[in-house]
């Protein structure tokens, strides 16, 4: 564990808490893509199957359980509890266009052709693009509430911090995992446009509004 990974994990958990609190407090999931949240719940389920086979540390187990539980809670809030406020007219990204290619890629490019390893790889590839329905929704409506922007910023920072973690581990521990690194790079790049708008607008107190 190094500082970058810890900060990355904290930023990841912060993003999830921001989103859950926003929906819970306002009893509204307007502006939130339920499809992205379904993809994230899929990602954690596929990746953390090793909870039952491999013990790494108490921290690792605790965080995995939290990620799985909170991702399902978020999906439940959007599709059941706050269903009336769900923006389904704008949340129209076809997730099969993300699921199928990442699944095929995971079958083709993986560390080892076993069920657990292919599913782990699938989760890594799928996570890298899972935010696209959310970014698509924001681009369709042309704006995002500040709280949604904070959520996206925390979520984008998480993989960015992991990139620093991987750089650190490469030099300090002679350890690297190309699948995670390349997917993490793709994931971080997808947020770049948003990061720019967040820094130039949201941090100056303005609402995130896309140029017409």
């Amino acid at each position: 564990m190094n500082i970058f990974r810890l900060l990355g994990d904290l930023s990841h958990i912060l993003a999830i808490i921001i989103l859950l609190l926003k929906i819970w407090k306002t009893r509204s999931c307007a502006g939130i893509s339920g499809k992205s949240q379904i993809l994230f719940a899929t990602v954690y389920t596929m990746r953390y199957l090793d909870l039952v086979t491999t013990y790494i540390s108490a921290y690792n187990t605790f965080m995995k359980v939290i990620f799985i539980a909170t991702s399902y809670a978020t999906v439940f809030l959007i599709y059941v509890k706050c269903k009336a406020t769900y923006d389904h007219n704008h949340d129209t990204f076809r997730i099969e266009f993300l699921i199928l290619p990442t699944l095929v890629l995971a079958l083709l490019i993986n560390h080892e052709f076993t069920i657990m390893e292919v599913l782990w790889t699938f989760s890594i590839y799928l996570e890298s693009v899972a935010i696209l329905p959310q970014l698509f929704l924001v681009s369709k409506t042309g704006e995002a509430e500040s709280i949604t922007s904070h959520y996206l910023f925390a979520l984008g920072s998480y993989r960015g911090l992991y990139l620093l973690n991987w750089l650190y581990r490469f030099y300090a521990e002679d350890h690297y995992d190309l699948i995670a690194i390349i997917a993490g790079l793709v994931q971080t790049v997808l947020y770049c446009d948003f990061f720019y708008l967040y820094i130039t607008k949201v941090l100056k107190g303005k609402k995130l509004q896309l140029p017409a």
Partner: peptide, 10 residues
């Protein structure tokens, strides 16, 4: 390359 098996990151 040292394989990440088990995967120790989140």
């Amino acid at each position: 390359q040292k394989l990440q098996a088990p995967h120790d990151e989140l």
